[in-house]
Amino acid sequence: MSAPDPAASSGLPFQLPPGAGPDAPVFAEPWQAQAFALAVALNERGLFTWTEWAAALSREVARPGAAADGSDYYAHWLAALEVLLREKGVAGPELVEALSASWQRAAHATPHGQPIRLENDPEFSRR
């Protein structure tokens, strides 16, 4: 590794992003923290091993088009989680799509300042 610098022979050049100090927040948005915690909790519960998790996440981050600044990292994380939940027979994409849409309708129907509840979805019906 002590060979002369091969001026970035392949791949993307590394540049330290601005504001990348140690004080940068751990998660940029609350959903990222929630998605992170879901994977940790499900692993602890034994739904998948951490090796399975790392393999699923590796597949997602290796897809073409990943952002060079890493800003889409938790989108990959979430995609990996959905893949594992599908593979483990916990939740298929149709259910996730339907419930996501329901949560979005519920949010639209909820007056600002009040907690969003799934029941607020105008199309809500108990499954």
Binding site: A91, S100, Q104, A107, H108
Partner: peptide, 26 residues
């Protein structure tokens, strides 16, 4: 000024709902 969930937040909400109902997470 009503609430809005971006698509990622909504997906996480959906997963939380499913996993909570199935008793897989607290």
């Amino acid at each position: 000024h009503d609430n809005e969930l971006d698509p990622f937040a909504a997906r996480v909400k959906a997963l939380e709902t499913i996993l909570t109902e199935k008793g897989l997470i607290d």
